[in-house]
Design a protein around this nucleic acid. Structure first.
Length: 258
DNA sequence: GTCCAGGTTTTTA
DNA sequence: TAAAAACATGGA
């Protein structure tokens, strides 16, 4: 089973992309390390040729066996896997993901994307190809609250300064979060004012590839309540975060959620 | 005008 | 402790 671009790129895990006539353009990376690619579904095999994008789209993980395990859990879980079997968890830059999910709180995906784009053009370095990278933590830590409000961050502006300062000062070590015990990792993130359990879990799942993290937003609350008897993520095992993404996508786009 | 958006913090009871 | 309100902004 190949990756599905349409079920993965705009599925609420990344925020820098556009689509026109089936051609997806994705931007990824911080500062001058930013890269972009334009790709169509029929050409996804080309992604395997490039080590960066091969890793970014997580093409070497075994999703077939994960889906097989998930499908045993319940009929709805199987339905979600069959509904969009080409979903993948992207390997985004950890800082970009963390910062983007601070932007995401009480916000909608379209507006998150617009704000992130303005953050990149305003605060992000431009590389030789003219692409703006995601702003570094150092840059945002030094920005004024006023200048952050000017790109539409609203009440999140001080939160962005808080998280940027924590990363810039090494209080949050993103590389450590990739290997720390999961409870400790969440706890470290949540010391920042503006990061709660949901944003912490999204940062860990989508930015640190911690597949055991299970972000619960309004959609997932409803799914767990309605179809899983209010159970927690334990029932999904070590790759719960992947199960979460299949359920989230199904709930949000199928129109079948009661 | 009201409600909502991949929430979190602050206030109130 | 737990529930409600406040927080910016723009689109439906």
């Amino acid at each position: 089973m190949d990756i599905s671009l349409r079920d993965t790129i705009p599925s609420g895990q990344s925020f820098r992309f556009s689509e026109q006539d089936g051609r997806w353009t994705v931007f990824a990376g911080v500062g001058k390390n930013v890269k972009s690619i334009t790709i169509e579904q029929k050409n996804v095999d080309e992604l395997k040729e490039d080590s960066f994008w091969r890793n970014y789209f997580d093409l070497d993980s075994d999703y077939e066996s994960m889906k097989k395990e998930f499908s045993k859990i319940s009929p709805i879980m199987k339905k979600a896997c069959d509904y969009a079997p080409g979903i993948r968890i992207l390997n985004q830059d950890s800082w970009e993901a963390l910062c983007s999910f601070v932007v995401s709180q009480n916000n909608n995906i379209k507006r998150i994307m617009a704000i992130v784009e303005r953050m990149c053009t305003t605060f992000g370095e431009e590389n030789k190809a003219g692409l703006h990278g995601f702003p570094t933590a150092d840059k945002l830590a030094g920005a004024s609250e006023e200048s952050l409000r000017a790109v539409g961050l609203g009440f999140r502006a001080p939160y962005i300064i808080n998280v940027s300062t924590a990363v810039a000062d090494g209080i949050i070590d993103l590389d450590y979060l990739k290997r720390a015990p999961i409870d400790e990792a969440r706890k470290i993130l949540m010391t920042v004012k503006g990061i709660g359990p949901k944003v912490a879990d999204c940062a860990l799942l989508f930015g640190c590839h911690r597949l055991d993290c299970f972000p619960v937003d309004v959609w997932m609350k409803k799914v767990m309540c309605t179809y899983f008897n209010g159970c927690g993520p334990e029932i999904f095992g070590q790759n719960a975060g992947v199960a979460q993404q299949y359920l989230f996508h199904w709930a949000r786009t199928s129109g079948e959620l009661k």
